[in-house]
């Protein structure tokens, strides 16, 4: 019996989703190719795993038991692949650095050539989205530079070196469209407008936390929220009168030109004294000296570029 392990991944997905189209999309193969892969797997195992009908695909009797073990293999296989890539990188002395799409990230990316890394080590930059914790755990990345809100992304298997912390949140609006009282600012008032926020790629957990916070503290949700892939884009939208910008920490210096004509207040500075953190992350059990050295030099560069105020 010879089993193509990629066929197992496709089978598992098909068994769980029941849809050839969905499975093809997830694994980036055509629908007929999914059929062929399932056929190959059934022939290899000498078992009928799936029954197809117009109503959808369901597991055959033998398929149920097979799936149980296939699940186990799939998990082990994906972990093996990640492990294999990590070994390869270690031998080549490559360190994969994930940098988020925050303002800090883009500044650091520009200054990256000035990074002093140990000789023979090649740090490689990768874009990341809001789910970098899993990417570290599965060894798809070695070092992450990211902004986080509250405790997002922290767990015992990840270590953090803080570059900078900021208090509270920034609320900013275009005075031509909104007339909030800066001196006696009332936060719930702004929730009746469209709320413009950075998305998880910029700062993980911000939008979700804010919604939970509104619910817990005021018993209301913002009428409408829009997430942007950068704080500057969100500020440009606020400028155009599309809503009120809410961003973590002290956002104004990061907005550049887009922020100039906005009125802003800082709020929750005492309630959330460490709401926003820019940090460098790697696995707690990291043993590679190359990875730790690259992480340390990114922390050093970050602290030079973004000193704590």
């Amino acid at each position: 019996m010879d089993i193509d392990l990629n066929c197992l991944l496709v089978f598992r997905h098909l068994a769980q989703s029941g849809s050839f189209t969905e499975t093809g999309k997830r694994w980036n193969v055509s629908q007929p190719a999914v059929s062929v892969m399932i056929g190959r797997l059934e022939s290899a195992a000498g078992l009928i795993l799936l029954e197809r009908s117009n109503a959808g695909t369901k597991l055959a009797a033998d398929g149920v038991l097979f799936l149980e073990h296939a699940n186990e293999v799939c998990e082990a296989y994906l972990a093996f692949i990640d492990g294999m890539h990590t070994i390869g990188r270690r031998l080549d002395r490559q360190v994969l650095v994930g940098i988020d799409s925050s303002w800090f990230g883009s500044v650091l990316k520009q200054k990256f050539p000035t990074l002093i890394s140990p000789s023979g080590v090649t740090p490689i930059i990768r874009e990341i989205s809001g789910i970098w914790r899993e990417m570290l755990q599965t060894t798809q990345l070695d070092v992450i530079l990211a902004s986080r809100f509250l405790h997002a992304g922290l767990s015992s298997d990840i270590q953090e070196a803080v570059i900078r912390k900021e208090r509270g949140i920034t609320v900013a609006w275009n005075p031509a469209f909104h007339s909030f009282d800066e001196a006696n600012f009332s936060f719930p008032e702004i929730l009746r407008n469209s709320v413009l926020m950075p998305d998880p790629g910029v700062v993980s957990n911000f939008a979700t936390s804010l919604k939970v916070w509104c619910e817990q503290a005021y018993g209301i949700q913002p009428t409408n929220t829009v997430e942007f892939s950068s704080e500057a884009d969100a500020a440009a939208a606020a400028n155009a009168g599309l809503g009120v910008l809410i961003a973590p920490g002290d956002a104004m210096p990061r907005l550049g030109k887009c922020g100039e004509s906005l009125t802003h207040v800082r709020t929750f500075e005492f309630l959330l004294p460490e709401s926003f953190t820019l940090g460098v992350y790697c696995r707690s059990d990291e043993t590679s000296r190359d990875v730790l050295a690259v992480a340390a030099s990114i922390v050093k560069l970050g602290r030079k570029l973004f000193p704590q105020v």
Binding site: M1, D2, I3, D4, L5, N6, L9, V10, R26, W27, N28, V29, Y77, L78, I81, M84, S129, G130, I131, R133, E134, M135, T138, Q140, L150, H151, A152, G153, L154, S155, P200, S204, N205, A207, T208, S209, V212, W213, Q216
Partner: peptide, 26 residues
């Protein structure tokens, strides 16, 4: 409030697709 919140925005794991995986067999 940090402890009331989900640890991550998205819980779904990132996995590569078939084109990015080596073709390994039993």
């Amino acid at each position: 409030i940090g402890y009331l919140l989900p640890m991550n925005e998205v819980t779904k794991k990132i996995h590569p697709d078939i084109q990015q995986l080596p073709s390994l067999t039993l």
